[in-house]
Every structure is written in C-alpha cells, then in structure tokens.
Simulated assay, not measured.
Amino acid sequence: MRRTSMVAGLVVAGTCVAGPALAVDASEVSRKLSFSEEDATAGLDVGAGLGGFTGDLGDETGVGGLFNITANAQPWKYIGVEVGYEGQNIPIDDARVLGGNNIFRNNGTFMGQLGPIVDHKWHPFVGLGVGLSYLHVSSGAEDVYNNDWQTEVPLAAGIEYRLGHLSAGVRATYRIVGGEGLFEVPGTTDDAKGSLFNGNVTVGGRF
C-alpha cells in the first residue's frame, strides 16, 4: 500500500513538473507553425536535376538531365498550388538503336501541395497533381521509337528554405505515367510500361 502511494505521489509530482514544460513546448511549436501574411506568398522557381524511367521503359533508356520553371502560391495555411513546365533529355540505351539518340520530354504539370510554413522559413511539403508530356524521339530512333503523348500523375516530396524574398529547395517526384506507346519491349509486341522518377534542386523568389 505504501509502495502504491509512493508511486502515485511520484506520478503526480512528475505531472506537475512536466505540465508547464509541455505547455511551453506546445506554445513554441504553435509559434513556429503560425501562419502570417508574409507566408501567403506567390513566387517563381527555376530548377535543374536528373532522372529517368523505371520498369520496361527504364530498361532501354538512361538517366537524363532536366530543367523546369514553376509559378507557385501559398494562399492557405497548409495548402499551396503550382503550375510549371519541365523539359528533359532522356538518352536511349537500346541495342536496336544507334548510340547518341534521345527522347525529348516536354511536360506541363498542375500540382497541389500540403505542408506547413515553419518559423516563416522552412516549408516541408508533399504534393499531388496531374500532368501531360509530349515525348519526341530523335530521328535516328524513329524506326523503333514513336513520338507519344503521356499522361502523368506526379507524387512529390521536398523541402524549401525561404530567406527574405529568396528561396531554395530540393524535391523528388515520382510520376505514374499512362498511355505509353513509346516503344515495344524487345522481342515482343507489348508496349513498354513504367513510371518516371526525377530529383531536382530549385532556386527562386517570393513576392
């Protein structure tokens, strides 16, 4: 009985000590996550990176460089939107095609973002959107590869740091693609399937 009373007393004492500390921590977290007028910004980013196809599409192609330009806005506390263009040059690594040929990808994407503005500087986020790409193959690959329209569902994750009106960030984007008619799997008449994975860094301004 005495031991139970001692334990109960320690729990009560610990709660009394920890209570104010938890209140301070909660207050600090709330302050860092508070949304102000300065967070409700619009901006423009430019980026560069690398990436390529996965699955059957990736078996016959390589990793290619990309660049993008994106207009974005954060009109709500945890929700932002962006619309952008991305261009990418993906090398073809296929025994049926002479070396030096490429797939030129031109993409437009609209994406919604979800994530807080922490301490008015850090912006971790995840994103979901829709996109459409036109894939244009170089002339040396036209006997095996086709120009193709490709629908995309991009899933993104990244983090951005804001310093005044400037910003810099990194992100990774996995794109579920559909409507592939780019080329057939070697030795079959099946259209090659796969997805697209890209990573890039961005710099930009906020207004």
Rank of each mutant, 00 (worst) to 15 (best):
P91Y: 01
V7H: 02
N102K: 14
I92K: 00
A156F: 05
V153L: 12
G199Y: 11
T41C: 10
G55A: 08
G181A: 12
P154R: 03
A18W: 11
G64I: 00
E28Y: 10
G194I: 05
S27Q: 15
V118A: 08
V24T: 11
G158S: 08
Q74P: 02
A48P: 05
I69Y: 07
G51S: 11
M1F: 11
S138Q: 05
P116W: 07
E28H: 13
T54M: 06
C16R: 12
N89A: 11
E152V: 03
N101A: 10
S36L: 10
G181Y: 03
G51R: 00
G112D: 02
G179C: 09
L50Q: 10
I79L: 15
L196Q: 03
S138R: 00
W149S: 09
V17G: 06
L163T: 06
D119Q: 08
G99I: 00
S34C: 07
I90W: 00
A73E: 07
H120D: 15
V7W: 08
L57N: 01
H120N: 15
F110W: 09
F104V: 04
I176Y: 13
A26K: 12
F67W: 15
Q88H: 09
V7K: 04
G43I: 00
V11A: 13
D25Y: 13
S138D: 12
R171G: 01
V170I: 14
D56Q: 14
V153K: 04
A42Y: 14
G112V: 14
V177K: 02
V81K: 01
E160V: 04
K121A: 14
V126T: 08
D191Q: 13
D119F: 06
T54R: 04
P20S: 13
L196N: 03
E184W: 02
N147H: 12
T109P: 01
T70C: 08
